[in-house]
C-alpha cells in the first residue's frame, strides 16, 4: 500500500527504460521495437503524427495495455507486467488526452483520491491537505469544493495536473495536456510544466504542439508508425531529414515554432 521509498536512482540506472518493446492489437503492431530511456530529472518530449502509437506507448508504460514483447524497467525494477494501479503506486503518474475526472465528486476529492491511493497518504485530512496544496499550485484553489463536472476544459486540464502531482510521482506522463487550449492557456500550462519540473519531477510530454516541446523539452523522441525514428537533443531531431519527411513536413524545417497537426 505504501509508496516505495523515494530514493533517487543513480545516474547509471535510468528512471525508465524500455527495451525492445512492442505491442500488438490483433494483427496490428501499434508499437514496434521501441528502445528508450528516460533519465531522472529530465523533461523529454515524445512526438509523432496522429496514429503514430504515442498514446499506446503511454498505455504500455502504465500497464493499461501490457507490452507484447520486450521489457520495461522503472527505477531498476521490472514493471513490464504490472497493472495500472500498481504503476500509479510506484510513482508513474499520467494525465489523459481526454480528461477523466470523477464528474460528481468535488474537485478536492478528485485530487485527494490521487493523494490517497497513489500517493500513499492517509484517508482524511492528510490526503485533503496535500490535495489542497496541489490545487493551489495549479491555480484551482478557489474551485476545490465544486463538482468536477462544473470545470471548464482548461480548468479540467489543470485538474489533471493537480491529480498527477498529488500522486507524488517520480515520473509524470503528460498526454496531450494542451490539446484544445488557446494560446494564452497553453502559455499558462507551459509555466506550470516548468514549475513542476523545477520540483524535480521527471516529465515525459506527449505532444502535438511543437511550441510546447521546443520550449520545455531538452530531448525529443519521434514515433512514426509505431517505430522510434529519431531521438536526441531537440535541435538535432528537428533537423533530422527522416523526421522532417515522415512527420513534420517541409515547411517546419524553416519554422520550427509552428504548430503541427490540425488541432487547436
Amino acid at each position: 500500500m505504501s509508496q516505495p521509498t523515494a530514493a533517487m536512482p543513480t545516474n547509471a540506472t535510468p528512471l525508465l527504460a524500455l527495451d525492445h518493446v512492442s505491442r500488438d492489437f490483433g494483427g496490428l503492431r501499434a508499437v514496434s521495437d521501441v528502445t528508450l530511456s528516460v533519465t531522472a530529472g529530465e523533461v523529454i518530449g515524445l512526438i509523432g503524427p496522429n496514429g503514430a502509437g504515442k498514446t499506446t506507448l503511454v498505455n504500455v508504460m502504465t500497464g493499461v495495455h501490457p507490452a507484447t514483447q520486450g521489457t520495461i524497467h522503472f527505477a531498476g525494477e521490472d514493471i513490464t507486467r504490472i497493472a495500472p494501479w500498481q504503476a500509479a503506486r510506484r510513482g508513474i503518474a499520467r494525465t489523459f488526452q481526454i480528461v477523466q475526472p470523477f464528474p460528481e465528486m468535488r474537485v478536492l476529492e478528485n485530487v485527494a483520491a490521487a493523494a490517497m491511493f497513489a500517493g500513499g497518504l492517509a484517508h482524511g485530512s492528510e490526503a485533503n491537505d496535500f490535495a489542497m496544496e496541489q490545487l493551489r499550485f495549479v491555480g484551482l484553489g478557489e474551485m476545490a469544493l465544486q463538482p468536477a463536472a462544473t470545470l471548464t476544459l482548461a480548468m479540467r486540464k489543470r485538474l489533471e495536473f493537480a491529480k498527477g502531482l498529488a500522486m507524488r510521482p517520480r515520473l509524470l506522463l503528460l498526454d496531450e495536456v494542451n490539446a484544445g487550449l488557446n494560446s494564452t492557456e497553453v502559455d499558462a500550462a507551459l509555466d506550470l510544466i516548468r514549475a513542476i519540473a523545477a520540483r524535480g519531477v521527471t516529465i515525459l510530454i506527449i505532444e502535438h504542439l511543437m511550441k510546447v516541446v521546443l520550449n520545455v523539452c531538452s530531448r525529443i523522441v519521434v514515433l512514426h508508425h509505431g517505430e522510434l525514428i529519431a531521438a536526441g537533443p531537440q535541435q538535432e531531431v528537428i533537423r533530422n531529414p527522416r523526421v522532417i519527411q515522415a512527420y513534420l513536413g517541409r515547411r517546419y524545417a524553416t519554422d520550427p515554432s509552428a504548430q503541427v497537426g490540425d488541432r487547436s
Partner: peptide
Amino acid sequence: QNEAAADMLGVN
C-alpha cells in the same frame, strides 16, 4: 464514477 480513471489513480 470512472473505473479506468480510478485504476490509473492507484485504486486496486
